[in-house]
Amino acid sequence: MEIVVCVKPVPDAETRLRAASDGRTLDSEGVKFVLAGYDESAVEQALLLKEAVPGSKVHVVAYGPAPRTEEVLRSAIALGADLATWVDAGAERWADPIRAARALAAAIATVPHDLVLCGKHSGDDEAGLVAAALGELLSVPDFSCAVDLRWDAAQGHFQFRRPVERGTETWTAPLPCVVGLQQAWNDPRTAKLPAILKSRKATIARTAASSPAPSPSVTPERFELPPPRTGAKLIEYRTPEEAAQKLVHLLREEAKVFP
């Protein structure tokens, strides 16, 4: 089975974020970009399928600028992906989701793909549009918020679940299709040191994003950080009883949430 996984470099959760001088985008200077969250779960899903279906290949594809995009592709290779394609976004600092999906779809269309996986949304912008747009652009069915995708060889279709309020839906999907995955349901593996070293030497196919996309469908207007939080109070205590007494006192006298 030919499994394509779309991944996106996103700022590490511990990064201190700043607005760029244009005031509209993230200042990427000094920001560490990682393969994170939903995409890790998508890669893990692909690797689980590869292990379950002999002869499968996992091909990671990412759209974005250097060097961060190449780095997250190497992270995916270290985890076990077989092939990687970097769709070079050139100097573009921010791509709207549809533009990113077009670039990814153009690359995916040229390679074998029985299944296209991605995080249900990215770890930074959380637009959640790429999976659906890929389905449209590749003219295949698309699903989102999936977990636990399996290949049913006897029936010739995929089966997956969707956690919903107070229950779980079970779905089947034909081949090929696009599936957006939930985060952290499959305990993504950690790349091993030898695989990390090997991934540094792996070949990453690079393609330029095909013809400049039509004018962006959306543009960011402003990038602002939330105002710093104030008013937090650290309660110091020696016993839990003392902590509770002080907390109740503050809630009653200062926050006035109790009469």
Binding site: P67, E71, R74, S75, A78, T190, A191, L193, I196, L197, S199, R200
Partner: peptide
Amino acid sequence: TAEQESLRDLARRF
């Protein structure tokens, strides 16, 4: 190097 950063990341995460 990028390789050293990824080794350090592995160790930090572990």
